Simulated assay, not measured.
Amino acid sequence: MSALARLRDLGLTLPAVAAPAGAYIPARRSGNLVFTAGQVPFVDGKVAATGKVGAGIDAEQAYDLARICTLNALAAIDGLVGLDSVTGVVKVVGFVASDPSFTGQPGVINGASDLLGEVFGESGAHARSAVGVAVLPLDVPVEVELTVEVGG
């Protein structure tokens, strides 16, 4: 089953690719790899939540925000090369704006990893970093970037 069909089966649709807020592009291909810019939790062009995880944003909400970020990254990939050209997910980097006492960054970024597994099956298995940071652009709690391998 194609990645786009799996998304439909999950009841998900790819959003419009967010316009860059700076001097960068949403995704870039180099050889058989596509790298996305960091994607934040935009829904219908608006930030879905702001604040720090562990202080106003709980881990479950942040997990859901990581899924939104990942959908936005998948949209950037689809806009560049078509999502169904993805043969595997190589790497996920997730940033979590965290209260200093919060140490559950890996659980938050599981939102991205779990979604990629649901969409790509075994091809969604990837290397990953989950990093706690003091603040992210627009005061969002989560940012996700992807590196995927594509065919052709």
Rank of each mutant, 00 (worst) to 15 (best):
A66K: 00
T36V: 15
Q61F: 01
A23I: 02
V92E: 06
K46R: 13
A3Q: 15
V92Q: 03
P15L: 11
G107K: 09
L14V: 08
S30M: 04
F35H: 12
L7M: 12
E118V: 01
L83C: 10
L80V: 01
V108Y: 08
L12W: 13
G124M: 10
G56W: 06
V133C: 11
L74D: 08
A19V: 15
R6A: 14
V144A: 08
F120S: 04
L136G: 04
I68E: 05
E60C: 00
D84M: 05
F95Q: 07
A59R: 13
K52S: 12
A127T: 02
R6G: 00
T50N: 03
K46C: 00
N110Q: 11
D64E: 13
Y24T: 09
G22M: 08
A134M: 03
A130V: 04
H126C: 14
D114E: 13
V93W: 10
V81Y: 03
A16N: 07
A3M: 15
A62I: 04
A48I: 06
V93R: 14
S101E: 12
A73G: 14
V86R: 02
M1F: 13
V43Q: 14
Y63M: 01
A59I: 11
S113Q: 12
V131C: 03
A75Y: 09
E122H: 02
M1Q: 13
G56E: 02
N72I: 04
L10Q: 14
P106E: 07
A23T: 05
T87L: 04
T70D: 04
A3S: 15
A5I: 11
V133R: 11
Y24D: 07
E149Y: 03
T70E: 08
G117H: 05
V131P: 03
P20G: 02
V131S: 06
T50I: 12
Y24Q: 04
G104I: 02
A23F: 06
S113A: 13
I68Q: 14
V17W: 00
S30Y: 09
P26N: 02
G124P: 06
A21H: 12
V96D: 06
R8E: 15
L71T: 08
G111S: 11
M1E: 10
V47I: 15
V144T: 08
A112Y: 02
Y63P: 02
E143C: 11
L138R: 13
G107I: 02
T50M: 07
A49R: 15
G22V: 06
A75K: 11
D139I: 10
G31K: 11
L7K: 13
V108L: 06
F102Q: 04
T50C: 09
P137T: 12
S2Q: 05
D84Y: 05
V135L: 10
V150M: 07
L71C: 08
E149I: 05
S101Y: 07
S101H: 09
L138I: 03
S101N: 13
L74N: 07
V89S: 02
G31T: 08
A3H: 15
A134V: 10
L12N: 11
D114I: 06
A23V: 10
A5Q: 10
R67Q: 15
D84W: 13
N32T: 09
